[in-house]
Structures are given as structure tokens and as C-alpha cells.
Amino acid sequence: MMSEKIAVAVDDLTVAYNYKPVLWDIDLSIPEGVLMAIVGPNGAGKSTLIKSILGIIDPIAGSVKIYGKPYSKQRDQVAYVPQKGSVDWDFPTTALDVVMMGTYGALGWIKRPGSKQKKQSLEALEKVGMLAFKNRQISQLSGGQQQRIFLARALVQNAAIYFMDEPFQGVDATTEIAIINILKELRKAGKTVIVVHHDLQTVPEYFDWVTFLNVKHIATGPVKDIFNDDNLTKTYGINYKVAVQQ
């Protein structure tokens, strides 16, 4: 199922906000073809890790390689689903328009999306079950529907590696199932999927690979091997069971 190829290699990564370290000396390698959760308490730097891998935040030390090359040379290999709350959903645009944005990277500067891009976007909308809503203004969508739109936008990028920042945050149960099914499909197609995840209870059910993170990198590996009390305690402290209940 899994090849030995390394999709993402993080080397000695240190990130600071206002000169306060939020990630310290992270070494991490993610093999190709895994469906991986990044877990850790609030403020552990989970989103920051993704953002610095994607070049949104500049690290103060260390390097990131995507299939052996810096991210700037591998953009077409990578798709990103930001946190739903990071954008203004009252923006005057439609669901289809947002999904089309996924094609902009491949288009490059100035070139406009055409019928080919539109077709790809409609397919992606269909895949997430949102085709009927393609002309809906995005503020009129429910939280779960908005999340699906974001997922469709990433699908359009047709990448090898998908980074997702809390895709299950504030979505209904149906959407959660729909999303996880799509993620599993992606893995089946040989893609690598990396998800910032909050809900520890669903980790064994959804994911096959997991990274524990709390400012420092604690452990990475197959869920069945390393998702245990020992690592949970190291990440969340002695009271981690409280965190699981949340």
C-alpha cells in the first residue's frame, strides 16, 4: 500500500511568532500515500507547521522538502485547504467561482480560466456533492457546505499531496463522513493527505498515520503502532483523557 518514497521532509524547522518560538526543531518525514493526522493541544503549532511547510510563514531555521525539492519548485504537487474561518464568507462570489480558484495556480499570472477549467471545477463540485449549489452565493451555504467547497477547490488542484487545516471543524455529521470518504479515496489513488485534526477519538477510525506535536515533534508513525497512552501523555500531559473527551 505504501511505498518508501518520502513525500514531505521537514528538517530542523523552527518557527517563531514575534520572536516567541511556536515550533521548535521539528524533524519529520511523511511517506508517500499515507492519510495522516497531526494532533496536539491548542497552541501546539499544528496549523503553523502546515503554514510553514507551504511557505505562508517564514521559518527562522530549517528547511522543508517536497519530494526532495523546495516547495517553491513543487507547487503543482501540493493542494491546500485552509481553515474555514480564515476567509470572509460574505465575499461576493459563488461556489463555482471559489472552486475555480483551485485552477489559478496552474494557469499562472494573467491567463483566465476557460471551459476546461470550468469542467474540472464542476467535476470537483460533483465529487463533493455540491453540484446543485454551484451558483449559490457562498454566504448562503451552511458550514459543512462551505467546507466541501474548500475541499473541491483543493481537489481541482489535482495534486499529489493535500494539506488540510481542521476540515472537520464546525461541519455536520453527514459532511464529516462525506469528507473522510473523499480523503480515503485520495489515499487509495496513491495521494498523500495531511490533516490537522482535533478529535482524538476518531483518529484510529479515519487515519492510518499520525504525528504528535506540541511545539516539539513527539512522534510520527502508523496509528496502530504509536497511537497509545504513552504518546498521548507526552503530547497532552497527564490529563490527556480530558482532551479526548472534548
Partner: peptide, 8 residues
């Protein structure tokens, strides 16, 4: 901060 990083 760089120093801290380095020491770590």
C-alpha cells in the same frame, strides 16, 4: 531566538 533554536 536563533540561539535558542541552535541550542535545542
Amino acid at each position: 531566538v536563533s540561539l535558542l533554536t541552535f541550542l535545542l
